[in-house]
Design a protein around this nucleic acid. Structure first.
Length: 488
RNA sequence: GGCCCUAUCGUCUAACGGUUAGGACAUGGGCUUUUCAAGCCCAGAAUCGGGGUUCGAUUCCCCGUAGGGUCACCA
């Protein structure tokens, strides 16, 4: 089966105008998944034909974002293909070549008007409440193009277009969408309308994934494909990602975050990819958690959703928790070390978050965390201080319910006695639990376990006493129990 | 405004004419329990409205309604 599809080529084609947000990343992901599923080619193409809007550093930022998510490209700004550069500003001769072909066919001509004049035409049309169409002002005879003026496309035929979209099905739109649009701007750069068609053709792109804002300009694209004698690729229109209140498409102005902010907050890239794949696509099964390989295997254009989907941060958090659970021990430690190091408290107190220590607290931390940034916050808030320094213990709180200090002291002393019998080398949380449990059952769990837990942590809320004792070690545990008993 | 697209629980979605309309997130309740977290169990919760077509419509058609998109020398 895969041999049939070896020639599948998809691309992600952002313009370098700033950071990437969820929407762009989702488009990239779908294009990537389809290419990989078919053992095809995934191209990253930079559409930098608007020099005004370009933001320095964007290309690097885009690449970093895609790499973080694991969306490696076969050709990109750093890897040109036989078709040449993947950066549009480096492909100007190609666009010119195709432009001249159109001129020769009489299908392109220089715009004889100044931009002010065109604006005037537009105003007039508006005043008369009719749509503005440049083709109504098309000159009788075409001048020779000297490339100081915009080059316009001469729509060969005003007609209704019908086409097929892999997601939306059969679509159609007509005359009013067709016009003599600009192919090459007066600054010499091509417009999106022109450049993307030439590039997709030159690069052998078979499937175009893009958001639904392009549906309405598809007739223009089709008229140009026709004029160039190029067969259009498969259109795959992705549903919009809506703001969580569903009132608007998610955009940078509406709080859409830089995807790399999610990295900084401690989201896992595989969780992000998993979540994004599921907004606008579904596997048709009840599986919800996917690795990247799972996604590649399961992905199918036929299962892409038509309707817009709201961005649901709660579900992203859940996906992240699920992926955290699936992390290898090594990866988990590496990430905990990274986020632990960000804690100002750790820096202040010069605490050493050794691998051994992190390894011990990892199970405790993982249970309490949705994103790794929370680990930094927990450390900052002093949540795990008792693991790293002796807690200050409020004597009145050691006592379980109405029992009174004597009983609490007895319990602590008895617990100490029992624990002393465990040797240093046999010390771990299970051993502690095993040793204490019979006594706790006999004496009443609360009366034993609460004083023990509180004495070790100095906190109203904490993991169970066995876990804490396991992390603290024999010596420190016995010491804290003794101190607490003496304070009663 | 013209043109185009979309419409199932609060949210992401399944059901490609016949299901008690399923799952997940979130919510509520319970269990477990020394506190917290986690875990487990249960519950509530939807086919936008109106017409058709059909023995039968979430599903097909039409009309509304609502939302979105688009009408640049931006992509």
């Amino acid at each position: 089966m895969d041999t049939n599809n070896r020639n599948i080529v998809t691309r992600f084609a952002p313009s370098p105008t700033g950071f990437m947000h969820i929407g762009g990343v989702r488009t990239a992901l779908f294009a990537y998944l389809w290419a990989r599923k078919n053992r095809g080619t995934f191209i990253l193409r930079i559409e930098d034909t608007d020099k005004e809007r370009e933001v320095a550093g964007s290309i690097e930022h885009i690449q970093e974002s895609l790499r973080w998510l694991g969306l490696e490209w076969d050709f990109g700004p750093d890897k040109p293909g036989t078709f040449g550069s993947c950066i549009q500003s480096e492909r100007l001769p190609t666009y010119l070549e195709f432009a001249h072909r159109l001129i020769e066919k009489g299908l392109a001509y220089p715009d004889p008007y100044s931009s002010e004049q065109v604006a005037e035409f537009r105003k007039q049309a508006e005043a008369e409440k009719r749509p503005f169409l440049f083709r109504n002002h098309r000159p009788e005879a075409f001048e020779k193009w000297d490339s100081t003026k915009p080059l316009r496309f001469k729509v060969p035929e005003i007609k209704r277009y019908r086409w097929h979209d892999a997601v939306r099905g059969d679509l159609e739109a007509g005359e009013e969408a067709l016009d003599d649009f600009i192919l090459i701007k007066s600054d010499g750069y091509p417009t999106y309308n022109f450049a993307h068609i030439i590039d997709d053709f030159s690069m052998g792109v078979t499937h175009i994934m893009r958001a639904d804002e392009f549906i309405s300009s598809t007739p223009r694209f089709l008229s140009l494909y026709e004029a160039l004698g190029i067969a259009p690729p498969v259109f795959v229109t992705l549903p919009p990602i809506l703001r969580d209140d569903r009132t608007k498409k998610l955009g940078k102005r509406d709080g859409a975050k830089d995807i790399l902010d999610y990295r900084a907050e401690g989201y896992l890239p595989e969780a992000m990819a998993n979540f994004l794949a599921l907004t606008g696509w579904n596997p048709g099964t009840e599986q919800e958690i996917f690795t990247m390989d799972d996604l590649i295997a399961a992905f199918d254009i036929a299962k892409i959703q038509k309707a817009g989907a709201a961005f649901n941060e709660e579900k992203l958090l859940w996906a992240n928790r699920e992926h955290i659970k699936n992390l290898s021990h090594e990866s988990l430690l590496r990430i905990l070390a990274e986020f632990g190091a960000k804690s100002s408290r750790v820096a202040e107190k010069k605490w050493d978050l050794s691998e051994e220590f992190l390894s011990k607290i990892a199970p405790i931390v993982v249970e309490r965390l949705s994103v790794f940034g929370e680990f930094t916050a927990m450390l900052d808030a002093g949540e795990f201080d008792y693991f790293l320094e002796e807690p200050t213990v409020d004597a009145s709180k050691i006592v379980w319910k109405e029992e009174g200090p004597e009983k609490a002291r007895d319990a602590l002393l008895r617990v100490s006695e029992i624990l002393e019998k465990i040797s240093e080398s046999n010390w771990n949380s299970e051993a502690v639990k095993e040793a204490i449990w019979p006594y706790a059952e006999e004496r009443g769990r609360g009366g034993v376990l609460w004083p023990m837990r509180y004495s070790l942590s100095g906190k109203d809320k904490s993991p169970d006493p066995f876990t804490i004792a396991g992390v603290l070690g024999r010596e420190e545990t016995l010491k804290r129990l003794k101190v607490a008993a003496e304070n009663l």
